[in-house]
């Protein structure tokens, strides 16, 4: 082996557990699936930019958990931007758009023109629309016209553990195939996909990026790379809802070449961001 990964768990980490992934010539890890704001059902760990950096994550595309249920989306986006600004360049805001709300185009304009955002993160299942509705195509095109990238969150939480009053099924991703084929230059990423989605609904979506937060199974990344191109698979933690160590350890569990590792943890995310 010409490379070695190891886990360091700091002894001085009783309250802020550290788990850094170290490797020679370590790329600066980019997490494409981070979030800030309150989760309605549980207090989540407060992971700030320092906590991310301690884990080797130097950049995190950051959405807002408030986006799920808050109607004043403009305020959600403004709060998100404030948190990201205070992160010293670690957190990169992914703004929210909710196409069922009146005047969503004004939220989009503010995201781009006032906040300078590069990414929009969508929650179709929490916002009550399907990807085969004309409304979605309309919003997608509006985002693309601004030159922005799009993240679609397939699911936030296992349905079996959801609060009984707020049960939300995963997004049906099937329509993406045709939508993307008609928009070959669109930069679109699906977050929190699982193996079933990858092998069924997303089959043949060659231009689509995905992240690894909900890819399960022993050797899960190795297995995914047998059916999904390495250039389109990104490190995503789904933290702070998930322990970020989950995705970081997946990089250790699977036997990845140095090129695969760099690709997954940094290069692909940069391509998605268009930088």
């Amino acid at each position: 082996m010409n490379r070695r990964f190891f886990i360091q768990t700091s002894t001085a980490a009783a309250t802020t557990p550290l788990l850094a992934l170290n490797q020679p010539h370590s790329p600066e890890l980019v997490d494409v699936n981070f979030a800030t704001g309150k989760w309605p059902f549980r207090e989540l760990p407060k992971l700030n930019s320092e906590a991310l950096k301690q884990r080797g994550i130097m950049r995190a595309i950051t959405g807002s958990l408030e986006a799920l249920l808050t109607r004043d989306v403009a305020a959600v986006n403004a709060r998100l931007v404030a948190v990201c600004k205070a992160s010293g360049g670690v957190m990169l805001a992914a703004g929210t758009l909710h196409p069922r709300l009146p005047a969503w185009r004004e939220d989009l304009r503010r995201c781009r023109e006032e906040h300078g955002m590069k990414v929009i993160r969508l929650h179709p299942n929490y916002h009550g629309y399907q990807l085969d509705e004309p409304l979605f195509a309309e919003m997608l095109d509006a985002i693309l016209e601004f030159g922005m990238a799009v993240q679609i969150v397939a699911q936030m939480e296992d349905q079996r553990t959801q609060h009984p009053l707020v049960q939300v099924a995963p997004v049906d991703l099937k329509p993406l195939h045709d939508l993307l084929q008609a928009r070959p230059k669109a930069r679109v990423m699906v977050l929190n996909t699982n193996a079933t989605m990858i092998t069924t609904a997303l089959r043949g979506c060659v231009s689509l990026w995905i992240d690894c937060a909900m890819i399960e199974g022993v050797g899960g990344l190795e297995n995914t790379l047998k059916i999904w191109p390495i250039e389109k698979l990104c490190l995503g933690t789904h933290a702070p809802f998930f322990y970020p160590e989950s995705s970081l350890l997946k990089l250790v569990e699977s036997d990845l070449s140095e090129t695969q590792m760099t690709s997954m943890t940094a290069v692909n995310a940069r391509a998605f961001l268009g930088t």
Binding site: V218, Y243, L249
Partner: peptide, 26 residues
């Protein structure tokens, strides 16, 4: 415990490595 092969070791180890508990508890 992991529940592998359906689960990864990684995601389940993370519940312990990532928790805000002491190393003795880990």
């Amino acid at each position: 415990g992991s529940d592998c092969g359906g689960r990864s070791f990684a995601s389940q180890l993370a519940k312990v490595h990532g928790a805000a508990i002491s190393d003795a508890q880990r």
